Amino acid sequence: MPLLIPEDLTEPGTHALVIGISAYQFLEGGDDVNPDNAHLGLKQLSSGARSASEFAGWLLDGHNMPELPLRSLRVLLAPAPGEVIHPAVQSLMKGYHAPTRANVEQAILDFMNATESHSENMAIIYVAGHGVQFTNEGAVLLLSDFGSPSHKRSKYAGAVDMTAIHKAMNYEGNANTQFWFLDLCRGLAPDTEDYDKLGGIFELDINRGEPTNTSPMFLSSSSGQTAYGRPNKVTLFNEALMVGLKEGYAAKTDKPNDPTWRVSTTSLIEYLPSAVEILATAHGRLQKVDVTGRVINSCLHECLSPPNVDLTVTICQTKNPSNYSAELSFRGNKIGHTLTSWPTKTKVRAGLYLVKVTTASPPDIRMDPYSIEPPASEMELPLQ
């Protein structure tokens, strides 16, 4: 069974489904290579299962929604030999957790039964592995038994159309709040030119009723692109996402001096595409995050404390640096020491600060508010 914790449907809460695939039994390098798959050019991965397990581990020990605690967590993983799995997840994986077509199909059906137990529920979905698309908007996840000889007459029986499942879950009465993270490539399926129709993909009926409140879908790559990962580590998308969640870099406050920093639909839209693009560029790659679905703002996670920020304080180039000193105060308390050398780099908590700037000649003191936001902030003095 893919459940990692006992399922509780008595009260509203968070229900999650996590799938990560690195080992493909019937693709090149797998345990039972099917030569009929050679033309696909698909090989084994080394970061899909680990990335999914990192996300599942965060759900277990980091996700914070006091009014919607985690009430079920389904995890299906196919790690490559030697691939590191999050220890908390590994310790709970008893039984059979292979992301085969049969297991994934049943897990999705059971997951949907859980999410629709209360309309106030939150549903969270994260998948990682090989992906293809048949349309510009598609995202089809290839499962661990993709390419099985038993699927000869239905080549994509070992696959699930994640965008179709997303649409199938978008109806009034299901979880009001849904967050979807699809960490996969979105290149055109390599065998589409040989067939009028490729059948067998797992999908579900799509309801014509009213939609759920919010259901943003974050796709790790744009149409036609590759989603990259570092060998034997995690994907670039996962790396950016986990830093954003764990360090609070993807968090914002609702109003100045609000003590609660929240990761929400809008804060993720602002943070995640740029964070992934920066990582990809640093590795000499092109990868852009697509955001689709119903993107009404909702909260995914409340940070337990304000995130840390790497702050750099400089003096305007037209000013004499030796003439200035500065102090930072947060809620009436001075933070750190008086700044007298420039540039100064320090780490502070995010929030709205009062900046006291003192000039020696002519003598003057100026007080200004300044909002310091994650992950990095640069303050040039004197403030305008």
Rank of each mutant, 00 (worst) to 15 (best):
A139V: 08
V127H: 00
P87K: 06
P79I: 06
G131C: 11
L109R: 14
A123H: 04
G131P: 06
E137F: 03
L77D: 07
F134H: 11
G138V: 04
G62R: 05
P81K: 12
A78D: 05
N103A: 13
L59T: 03
S119L: 08
N103Q: 14
G131I: 00
A98K: 15
G129W: 10
I85E: 05
E116R: 15
V140D: 06
N64S: 06
H86A: 13
M122H: 04
E116K: 15
E83G: 03
V75T: 12
V132D: 08
A114D: 15
D61N: 14
H130V: 14
S117R: 06
G95A: 02
E67W: 08
P79S: 11
S91D: 09
R71W: 01
E67P: 07
M122F: 02
W58R: 00
L92D: 12
I124M: 02
M65D: 08
I125C: 13
A80I: 00
G62K: 04
Q90R: 13
A98D: 15
E67H: 13
L109V: 14
A114K: 06
S72N: 01
L142M: 14
L143H: 03
G129A: 13
G82P: 09
D110M: 11
A78R: 09
R71Q: 01
L143I: 06
A80K: 03
N136Y: 03
T115E: 15
G57C: 09
Y96P: 03
P66Q: 10
L77R: 07
H130L: 15
V104E: 09
L141S: 08
M93N: 00
V84E: 14
V84I: 10
S91A: 15
A78Y: 07
L76R: 05
N121H: 03
P87L: 06
P81M: 14
R71V: 00
Q106Y: 00
P69W: 06
V127D: 05
P87C: 10
V140A: 01
V75I: 14
F111T: 01
E120I: 00
A88F: 13
Y96D: 14
L143C: 01
G147F: 00
A98Q: 15
G131Y: 07
N103H: 13
A102Q: 15
Q133I: 03
Y96G: 01
W58M: 05
G147R: 02
P99R: 09
V104I: 11
S119P: 09
N64C: 01
H130R: 10
S144Y: 02
I108M: 10
F134S: 13
